[in-house]
Simulated scan of single mutants.
Amino acid sequence: MEKIILDCDPGHDDAIAILLAAANPKIDLLGITTVSGNHNVDNTTRNALSVCTAYGIKVPVAKGSPGPLLIDQVLAVEIHGETGLDGPELPPASFELDRRHAVDFIIDTVMAHEPKTVTLVPVGPYTNIALAARKEPRIVERVKRVVAMGGSFSRGNITPAAEFNVYADPEAADVVFRAGWDVTMVGLDLTHQALATPDLQDRVRALGGSISRFILDIWEFIATTHGGLLQIEYPAIHDACCVAALIDPEVFSTEKADIRVEIAGHWTKGMTVCNFEKMGGMRHFGGTASEQVNFRHTVAMKLDHTKFCDLIVDAVERLTRQKA
């Protein structure tokens, strides 16, 4: 069983990631932490609590960072709406937040478990993860791995070079990729394969019930924004890809790479520069020893869409049975 902390900014695809993590018996969801990203942290926290309330998910929820480490705040209101989760109807939260800041929750949880047993799954900007690593450096050696939604090795979705989660706090992403832990980058090149195709939507619709309706409402809303702004044929289920890979490691293929985050470029800030080992990667990023290449990161490459869809449908089935 994979013990995880889901660090998120709900967000439509974040909500599906929460449901997938809560539903699957191979995942032990230790807690949910929230961050500013798709919307401000007050709204992302409220949305996380409301999703948990609606579907009986009883895990600690800790509110995190209200903005990036250094730069001005960037939100994705044009994608996720004025609440951060426009479209589906959710009840008000019926339980209280964990009293700790998300950064302290992450540190406390990692330190309380045996080394190499807790995986961090950031699917919003990496601010909380970076701050936790800086505040308590010992967690870097204790964390099993970091499986992060964000970045790209081809092109971005908020600028030509940068993906949103990394662009929203590039300095935090730089901290995360430079730390000594095992990082898997689940970027746009992978998540744009994770589409809510008509076949998947039909399978979810056939299940019936409130959870099916909730997910279909998410996809209906996102179709209007993704299609108009990002030119994606069907809604992309970005964040759930990270959870899916922890349930079934064969849901996508990977390659080893050295990943660096551009934090200074005028046109390329937030770009994830991927130097692939298998593709004859360059042995130096620059002239100093600190810039020498170490192919220690993992990059998600090719999605098995059938397996991914099966996991989404299975989660809806399980949660529907639990709610009945």
Rank of each mutant, 00 (worst) to 15 (best):
K144N: 14
R145D: 14
V147M: 10
V147T: 12
A148K: 06
M149R: 09
M149F: 12
G150P: 13
G150H: 03
G150Q: 05
G150Y: 01
S152C: 11
S154N: 05
N157L: 04
N157R: 02
I158M: 10
P160A: 02
A162R: 02
A162G: 04
A162T: 03
A162V: 04
E163C: 07
E163L: 05
E163H: 03
E163I: 02
N165W: 00
N165Q: 15
N165H: 13
N165A: 09
V166Y: 02
Y167A: 12
A168K: 02
A168W: 00
D169K: 04
E171T: 11
E171A: 14
E171Y: 15
A173R: 01
D174H: 15
V176S: 13
V176E: 10
V176A: 14
R178E: 13
G180A: 14
W181E: 11
W181T: 14
V183R: 06
V183W: 03
V183T: 12
T184F: 03
M185R: 04
M185S: 09
V186N: 08
V186S: 11
T191D: 10
H192A: 05
H192L: 05
H192T: 10
Q193R: 13
A194P: 00
L195N: 12
L195W: 07
L195T: 15
A196L: 13
P198E: 06
D199K: 15
Q201T: 07
D202N: 14
D202I: 06
D202V: 05
A206K: 06
L207P: 01
L207E: 14
L207I: 15
G208D: 08
G209N: 04
I211Q: 05
S212F: 07
S212K: 05
R213V: 06
R213C: 07
L216R: 01
L216I: 08
D217K: 02
I218R: 02
I218Q: 04
W219I: 04
E220H: 08
E220C: 01
T224V: 11
T224Q: 14
T225H: 09
